[in-house]
Write a protein that binds this DNA or RNA. Structure first.
Lengths: 113, 113
DNA sequence: CAGTATCCCTTGAGATACTG
DNA sequence: CAGTATCTCAAGGGATACTG
């Protein structure tokens, strides 16, 4: 994965903090996915995909994988047939809740279309 | 520009608000750029570029252009030689300040490297 | 049902050169 | 100094098929 991070050569402390956050949650879909999980608390892959709608299978899988590996969401696998997988926010992920709330509120306030 | 937006076919109100926000501020660089402008209040193109460091000329120009056209930042052009251009947050852009603060704080709190 | 792998094309984004 | 344009190439991401 080399260095896809922005500001990898962080010289300014303040900016680094912002960059750290962005490296976790930036991306076209991450917050939207998180928002859906946050909304339902626990959600299965299929429902998540259906709810988001305009996301492809591959995109969703990839993003979920990253979120899991970043420790933001938890993946619970039920070994049954057919398989069932549930996603939920970890405690760490839940610390993003206030941020998601603000982003939501900001959109609600400013969207005029 | 067609429809690069996520969730263009918005069926769920709540999700739409979030999507609206993401359509404004998502992107690898936008919030980092905004954070720098917010930090300095008023900043020239050159200084902005130098401060961000790891961004290319093209990227920065493009992102700034989008931010201006979204009404988030203001561009003040001084017609002199050599030219001077200053960027600052608009009133609308300033409403993002609390969000930026939270993102910053979140990064500060969680960055352990 | 959930997830991976492959194919393939579009887009993003860097380097560079040029203009006002 | 600030910004645009072109050329180029790698990566992102869609469609589809396959596996557990």
């Amino acid at each position: 994965m080399e260095n896809k991070d922005i500001l990898g050569d962080c010289s300014n402390g303040a900016i680094c903090h912002m960059a750290y956050t962005m490296n976790r949650i930036a991306g076209k879909w991450k917050l939207v996915i998180l928002w859906h999980i946050y909304d339902k608390e626990v959600i299965r892959y299929g429902e998540l995909k259906r709810n988001i709608g305009k996301i492809t299978h591959k995109m969703l899988s990839n993003q979920l994988k990253e979120l899991v590996s970043d420790g933001i969401i938890h993946k619970e696998i039920y070994h049954q047939v057919p398989p069932k997988v549930e996603y939920s926010l970890t405690e760490y992920g839940k610390t993003l809740a206030p941020i998601m709330d603000m982003l939501y509120e900001w959109g609600k306030k400013n969207r005029k279309d």
